[in-house]
Design a protein around this nucleic acid. Sequence first.
DNA 1: GGGACTCTAACGCCGCGTAAGCGTAT
DNA 2: AATACGCTTACGCGGCGTTAGAGTCC
Lengths: 133, 133
Amino acid sequence: MTIDGMHQIGEVAEAVGLSLRTIRHYEEVGVAPPSGRSPGGFRLYTDDDVERLRLAKALKPLDLSLEEMRDLLDTRDRLADPAIKGKARTELVERLAMYAALALERCNLLEEQLTSVREVARTLRNESVTTKK
Amino acid sequence: MTIDGMHQIGEVAEAVGLSLRTIRHYEEVGVAPPSGRSPGGFRLYTDDDVERLRLAKALKPLDLSLEEMRDLLDTRDRLADPAIKGKARTELVERLAMYAALALERCNLLEEQLTSVREVARTLRNESVTTKK
DNA sequence: GGGACTCTAACGCCGCGTAAGCGTAT
DNA sequence: AATACGCTTACGCGGCGTTAGAGTCC
């Protein structure tokens, strides 16, 4: 940890469980930019930045494009700002709801895959045991 | 369906639920080649070919490389040949067992993802409801 | 011969992995 | 001054999607 509670990339990668490359890439495409840089150019992440990265990682199974992920995260962040009111806010809420729905769909898909892959696993086990002796 | 119980690619795609492109690609890399071709060059798949494609699709959530998939499928097919005996057979069985183990691992990973994505889904729902009115 | 189907060849895209060569932090 | 850490740039890759243009089936 550096001065002022800022973290540099290695530390963050360790904590979040993403590769350096991925974290840098997430900056490039705006998914999770660091709030600052050291004088020498090192990326510096606040705790909130790290949280955003965590969320990003958690979102991965949703299989969104990185652009969609950025949109989702931005939407969430903007909703957290109570200064946004009225129609603008409603719009954001609806967008978030969309993503929520999408997440549910994706849950179902994952469940299907899980059962399917379980079946396959059993089949393979069987075949590699039945045939054994 | 063409003569002799052979199916052409569109029919197969429909039945299995893979795109034409994917099926062609699976031939290119040896995952699921058609048993024949029409005089004019159309791919012709037997019922067994179609079965192999089905299996290939079911295997997708395992997240193997196509090369590994090919290996898995080939191993299975060769095991089905009772002419293979002794050490060679044992080797095949062990290889299949490896894939079975890998499948189990993958199951766990999928479970993790599922719970994680469920949590996210709930969170999003909450946020898009709490904020609503 | 007309319409549906299929073919090959080639480029494009996304989400990073992986060097290479060089600067920064302590 | 050594060691660990980080930076940018750029190429590569897997698994297809997507034209484009030509051939095949019946």
